[in-house]
Design a protein around this nucleic acid. Structure first.
Lengths: 125, 125
DNA sequence: CAAAGGTTTCAGAGAACTTTGAAGACTCTG
DNA sequence: CAGAGTCTTCAAAGTTCTCTGAAACCTTTG
């Protein structure tokens, strides 16, 4: 579906066009739209003159996708943190969990900064 | 399985211990070991005196995992690139694909650098 | 070098996920 | 405000993925 929206030679695409083009049912289109919308990758486009819904990739969709990944990083960080709290100090487990927490802590700090740097560099073009 | 290896209070864990502790069959352990080994997250540990295989998380496993993600980024970059080659210039599709390629190109350059920075900062501790 | 201990492979069973199609809900428009 | 057009929901069907258990395969050791 993302590929279909990427390659479309129009600004936005209707649900029936997606169904037809991809050879899937309207129900599947509806489900995919719902999922991709909540993730923030696509958006509904108001289409005056047509009663059909139009969809398109959101501006900056890829940065959004990367930021979504960041919540995975956060989850790993928190899991490690809770693990450390539950484990006895000075055990192999504590050592491993500390390495894990430090790594994901680092990434959780740096990844958003990286995406931000992309945004500003993009601005200049 | 990763959690089991993380929390183990010994340096390494045997396959039967993993099966017993997780309540899964030896076949499943074998499959998981194979998968995690090829990804580089765990390693076999030579265990003199025991005939059983011992496993443990590899040093720097999390950095490895992040680097593996990078190949996804690369795939996205290449997909965008091929898309641009296939699309007509000055179309909405070309514009979208260019944004995608630029973003993943940026990430493909910067992510390894980020992991590397982690490695060197880690060194100092 | 045979036998015991341990691991891997693989076909079949089961679980989880996805898709479909039809019914219901929503929303413009005349 | 009725009707046509469009979208969403959901149960059933289909597909894919994962697990198990048994058999085959290594590998160490007496």
């Amino acid at each position: 579906m993302l590929a279909a929206l990427l390659f479309a030679d129009t600004d936005s695409v209707t649900a029936p066009e997606l169904a037809e083009g991809l050879g899937i049912s309207s129900g599947s289109v509806s489900g995919a739209v719902k999922m991709l919308s909540t993730v923030g990758l696509i958006e509904r486009v108001p289409a005056p003159g047509s009663r059909r819904e139009h969809y398109r990739l959101r501006e900056g969709a890829w940065a959004t996708l990367m930021s979504a990944q960041n919540s995975v990083v956060q989850a790993m960080f928190e899991a490690a943190d809770q693990g450390i709290a539950a484990a006895d100090a000075d055990t192999p487990a504590a050592r491993r969990l500390t390495e894990m927490r430090d790594f994901y802590g680092f990434m959780f700090r740096e990844l958003p900064a990286l995406v931000e740097r992309w945004q500003t560099e993009r601005q200049r073009l």
